[in-house]
Design a protein around this nucleic acid. Structure first.
Lengths: 293, 293
DNA sequence: ACTGCCCATCAGGAACGCTTATACCGGGCT
DNA sequence: AGCCCGGTATAAGCGTTCCTGATGGGCAGT
């Protein structure tokens, strides 16, 4: 299970073609064919069907492993490279959309910043692989509890902000007049499923009083990243949305009601590679200092 | 960063000797020397000091990465091997000591079981690498919240038991008469630090009302795995111990007082490799069924 | 049936990686 | 000081691996 073989395997699986993968990787088609054959021989399992080229069940599993493995390999290399790297004057920050709010934006240096918005789960990977110097992730957690982040590599996470959560309801909704909502009040509600723009609902699962396995019924799935659109959808009655209270309060044509039970908050964390012995006075150290003060 | 190179690197670092590592790996000393040289050239960093052989700071970091990487590689191979493997009649279970209680022990099949007690953090690795067919881990969590496990590989975790927590105090302790204790009552107390026999205290950190960074003051560190000894130490006044209530209640010469705030429980989870399409009627499926019923 | 596309296979040459042999370096002994 | 000894680095040689280029075979569309 040579990483090179894994790399060609994931490329072939992604492109669904040996020849395409060969072009992308700078190999000949023959080499790619041999790579796959070597992997299949090593594991004594068929990994891909040919014509059409698609992963077998075993191949699907290998894809998961290979992805994580290659990511971790990149992370290791990036981490070690930082040891030798010269101090940089610019700062590159990867952030999930809702991690960008007044508190974190105010801490960004005035110049030399590259800000990249990424889906929530891609932020740790970006920091680990060195694509970003620092990361900002948000999520739902119990008060003063750390977020559950996928540990692609050893990253240092520190909390930088916590805000209440609020449910966005159409003003005409029967519960819109409440001063606070319990999740139990909403077990029958339809939710908006917007992993990129909103908050991941599944974190709530099992945390409320009901049976742990109980999922959330979703009315509409929104795959964009725009919170304004999400709020508009909620206002239009396409489903309920869960947002940080400050964000939810700004929504026109809808009412934001704080979530009071279970006791959960919207939390933002700063992610740094543990190897970043952020040189004093450098942009990373400065950013960190301003976030913590 | 070939895994072979990483493997020899960690071996050299562990044995603090090129020659010893060569013997253990079945290479010549020359090959080992070349492996290390290749790694150092690739990363353009010195990884080891010679005479004595010890990792440099960069080398220390590489050790962390390499360990995780090799573990994940083993996990991947084991996972894929399970696809082709023939159904087995025996069941091998890896468990952390406190995960073994009436509820879980009752679910074990009558025959053909190998039970291996491991430190808490080694259980996921054992299941992932196929050393065990299933794992039982325990830990502290909020009620009906999953445990925070290191994700060496995709494992399926399901809760199988939750019990209250109790603090073990000497009968003469001023707080021994209480019917329940809050963690805040105990901020000044001395604790027993027994990661193998007891529960990891650091999970409590930040969860109680006080400042999040605040640690626990420990009086004595016990590195054994025997709960009875831990309890005896607590009874003898060497420090407080935190244990699952049913276990704590059995301690002679000491008093167990339930922990009522923060609301945390002792939770036990079953760990299965996601690839185990546990064939119906097989020992793994049987064990799972009896645990869930 | 023919043709185009794509994957598998084969043979040859370059590159890699291991071993054997030897040089080098530092510490301890006489 | 000189010598030996344990241990690492370097050099040369050789077997294996791995990639390329060429060729064969299967499937689909024309």
């Amino acid at each position: 299970m040579d990483p090179h073989l894994l790399r060609t395997y994931v490329t072939v699986a992604r492109l669904a073609s040996f020849s395409e993968a060969a072009r992308e990787l700078g190999y000949t088609q023959s080499a790619v064919s041999q790579h796959i054959a070597a992997l299949e021989a090593d594991l004594a399992l068929p990994l891909l069907t040919r014509r059409p080229v698609a992963p077998t069940p075993a191949g699907e599993r290998l894809l998961e492993h290979a992805g994580a493995l290659l990511l971790r390999l990149d992370a290791a290399r990036a981490d070690l490279d930082r040891f030798a790297a010269a101090p940089r004057a610019t700062l590159s920050v990867a952030a999930s959309p809702l991690a960008l709010h007044a508190r974190t934006l105010a801490a960004l240096p005035a110049t030399g910043v590259t800000l990249r918005a990424l889906p929530r789960e891609a932020v740790p990977a970006a920091v680990a692989t060195g694509e970003a110097d620092a990361g900002l992730v948000d999520g739902i957690a119990a008060p003063s509890d750390p977020l559950r982040l996928s540990d692609v590599a050893p990253l240092a996470a520190t909390g930088v902000a916590e805000e209440p959560l609020a449910v966005v309801l159409p003003t005409t909704h029967p519960l819109a007049g409440r001063s606070g909502l319990r999740l139990d009040d909403l077990v029958d509600a339809r939710w908006l499923d917007a992993p990129a723009a909103g908050l991941p609902l599944d974190r709530l699962r099992g945390a409320h009083g009901g049976p742990a396995g109980r999922g959330f019924r979703t009315a509409l799935r929104y795959e964009g990243t725009d919170t304004r659109t999400l709020a508009a959808l909620a206002a239009a009655g396409h489903g309920l949305a869960l947002l940080p209270a400050p964000v939810a309060a700004d929504v026109a044509g809808a009412t934001a009601v704080p979530l009071i039970a279970p006791r959960l908050v919207h939390r933002t964390e700063l992610l740094l590679p543990t190897a970043s012995r952020a040189e004093p006075g450098g942009p990373v150290a400065e950013f960190t200092r301003r976030l913590k003060s």
